[in-house]
Simulated scan of single mutants.
Amino acid sequence: MSPPPGFETQFGQQVCKLQKSLYGLKQSPRAWFDRFTTFVKSQGYSQGHSDHTLFTKASKTGKIAILIVYVDDIVLTGDDQTEISQLKQRMGDEFEIKDLGNLKYFLGMKVARSKEGISVSQRKYTLDLLTETGMLGCRPADTPIEFNCKLGNSDDQVPVDKEQYQRLVGKLIYLSHTRPDISFAVSVVSQFMQAPYEKHMEAVNRILRYLKNTPGKGLMFRKTNRKTIEAYTDSDWAGSVIDRKSTSGYCTFVWGNLVTWRSKKQSVVARSSAEAEYRAMSLGICEEIWLQKVLSDLHQECETPLKLFCDNKATISIANNPVQHDRTKHVEIDRHFIKERLDSGSICISYIPSSQQIVDVLTKGLLRPHFDLCVSKLGLIDIYLPT
């Protein structure tokens, strides 16, 4: 590190060599994680191959203890209660730790348990955000983004405060960890971080007005007997008016519960809607394979083949029968990847009608009836609503 202030003349051109990492340096988190990993592995835990922050220890009796860490916040779970209490004691000897009891809040997310299942929501975070922006008394909106809303750039628009815009969108991105219903709207407004205009700020305010309507919505995880991984993929062809790139969307269900989702602008321009769907399909398959690996790290079985639902028959035909013609010859890598997975029998692709396609909420602005239907099928519920 460079010499501390006031010692420059004594050091001249020399620098200090650190004996250990100091708080605030770039390497400090890495050094802490290495130290923590070494300790956890010494206790007989194995590190996950698909998620390096996940550690598991299976006993001979078939019970399991699971540890997941985010910087210095740790969640312990599993059915091996003796191992969990022993680990807490050993960790207390090694580090200064505080046992907060049963999981209630984690990184701003509220975890609630009931007979129905486990719900995860960010109600307090949402209300704090609305209070901070002065939107608690605003007129609520039914949807987070207007129907078929296309945001672009034009020279005659009025610019807005860039720092305030970036701060707001950053908070909304964090909120979309438990709110797939705002994912698409947030992904659209986050494309104008460098030079936001009034129109973009209005779109951000529209998301806040929607949150005012539904502050307590969150994910619900119910216990089921199904052992399947299912993915739904969709795309909005040439959705961006700036560069005509398409938007991919997918969501995955593990054992019938929504676990991951994504709304992302594609990196290249697609020449046909089938090509755009094809790229979204390969994203969905990658996510399913990763989830299968996470489940195997957790010593859980899952049924194969993995199921993928798509509402474009042309895409499914190309996947099953990859004919070479002008429309598909440039979609090279995705095509071989999907074909390989289909041939090995690890995935199967099924057709689903557009009216039942729930990923529409992640690729385009919808009208309220269709939007409400998609959100309810995703399994989002508000546990704070009076029954």
Rank of each mutant, 00 (worst) to 15 (best):
L168A: 02
I173N: 03
R167Q: 13
D156K: 15
T178F: 02
V188N: 04
I207E: 06
E202D: 11
N213Q: 14
V160C: 00
Y197L: 11
P215Y: 14
H177G: 01
A185W: 14
F192C: 04
D155N: 15
F192Y: 14
I182T: 10
G218Y: 05
I207F: 11
Y165H: 02
E198H: 10
L168S: 08
F184Y: 15
Y165P: 02
K212W: 01
E202W: 06
A185L: 14
G216R: 09
M220D: 02
E202K: 14
K162D: 02
Q157C: 07
R206G: 02
Q166D: 06
L168W: 07
V204L: 10
F184C: 08
D155I: 07
Q164S: 14
R167V: 03
F192Q: 01
A195I: 04
G218L: 04
A203E: 11
V169E: 04
V204E: 10
N213E: 10
Q194R: 09
L208S: 03
I173T: 03
I182P: 08
V158N: 12
P159C: 02
K199C: 09
P159F: 00
A203S: 15
Q166L: 02
V169R: 13
A203G: 08
P159D: 03
G170E: 05
H200W: 12
S187K: 12
M193V: 12
I173H: 06
S187E: 08
P196H: 05
D181L: 08
L175M: 02
L211P: 11
R167E: 05
Q191V: 01
P159I: 05
R206N: 09
